[in-house]
């Protein structure tokens, strides 16, 4: 078990180094930062000074090493556009994205699993078939369209919920939260649904097909032959066996909820890192882009690690190896 975790950690480090290289090479190849930072009225002296200041005159491996050293400490340099440290900017923006991702992820998982189990058990039922049909729409409609539709219905026509922004936020330490105010909570509803809908339908369909598979298994028939109640069979025996493949997909999906909140954040003008990233691309703000890239990859790698550990928790068959250690 311990050896396994160490091995996985090493793999993660390799992944991060590769992503780091990509992020670093953006500095070299995507435009010339000097050009972007200094205006038309520059002198050669200005250019040289800035070049030395940014360390661009040193050999590439040295630059990469320095980049990594700084990156490990969470220091990605200064935003070209805002002139402030990138880490500060991201720290300001992250709570918005994380809160949004958390709520929509929670919605997607709970609703997805519940509906998946329901549609699997009542396979022939009318309600299950309606849900399945509607879920197709959830999978096939693009996120921005769902967002715009929701805005049109609930903000423009019904005037129930705000159409953009986070509402009022409260600062707890460095964390700005929208959970504690009514307007903050109201502002969360539409973006969270927009962001989570696709994941929810995906999880639901996955749970359903896995569940149908498991319900045909011999041990479910045997459980039935032992006279266990349907509730115990469905929610104890079948659901737990359904979880292993579902966790894999769900883990990856949660990563993408955070990483690809960009579209939702743009539609709802949500002041999160996704919106920050879009703006950074527009202005070729490479430190921000590099930091964002690293942040997302750290997130994916750690979610994957957690998913692998969850397998161990759920499936005892994987623990045999560990026992021998």
């Amino acid at each position: 078990m311990f050896a396994y975790i160490v091995r996985r950690m090493l793999q993660s480090v390799i992944v991060l180094l590769v992503v780091g290289l990509v992020a670093f090479s953006m500095f070299r190849f995507v435009g010339d930062p000097i050009d972007n930072m200094l205006g038309q009225e520059r002198t050669q002296a200005d250019i040289d000074r800035l070049r030395t200041e940014l360390g661009l005159d040193q050999p590439i491996p040295v630059q990469y090493y320095k980049f990594l050293k700084e990156a490990v400490q969470g220091n990605f340099g200064v935003s070209y556009r805002q002139g402030r440290p990138v880490s500060t900017i991201i720290a300001e923006r992250a709570p918005a994205t994380l809160e949004l991702a958390f709520v929509s992820g929670f919605l997607a998982i709970t609703m997805g699993i519940a509906l998946g189990v329901f549609t699997a058990i009542r396979r022939q039922g009318v309600a299950a078939n309606i849900i399945m049909t509607v879920s197709l729409i959830g999978v096939s409609l693009p996120t921005f369209l769902i967002g715009i539709l929701l805005i049109y219905i609930f903000s423009v026509e019904l005037d129930l919920l705000p159409s953009f922004g986070r509402g009022e936020t409260v600062m707890i330490g460095n964390w700005s939260t929208g959970f504690l105010t009514t307007s903050g909570l109201k502002a969360l509803i539409l973006p969270a649904i927009t962001l989570g809908l696709y994941q929810m339908t995906l999880i639901m369909r996955l749970v359903r097909s896995e569940m149908l598979e498991v319900l045909r298994a011999d041990y479910v028939r045997f459980a039935r032959a032992r006279g266990l109640s349907d509730r115990v069979i469905n929610f104890r025996h079948a659901l737990k066996n359904t979880m292993v493949p579902v966790i894999t997909i769900t883990g990856l999906q949660l990563g993408s909820i955070i990483a690809f909140a960009i579209i939702t954040e743009t539609v709802f003008q949500w002041p999160g890192v996704g919106l920050l990233f879009i703006n950074a691309i527009q202005f070729v703000d490479i430190p921000v882009m590099a930091a964002y890239l690293m942040l997302i990859s750290v997130m994916f790698v750690s979610i994957n690690l957690i998913v692998d550990l969850l397998y161990y928790a759920i499936d005892p068959r994987l623990r045999v190896d560990a026992r021998a250690t």
């Binding site: 011999d218 041990y219 028939r221 032959a225």
Partner: peptide, 25 residues
């Protein structure tokens, strides 16, 4: 019928490898 199954009438299946739930002791 559920009250009878397992109580009055039990069943043994063919394949012992698949008739026990792998995730429970």
């Amino acid at each position: 019928m559920r009250g009878l199954r397992g109580k009055k009438i039990s069943m043994i299946f063919q394949d012992p490898l698949t008739s026990l739930n792998p995730l429970f002791t």
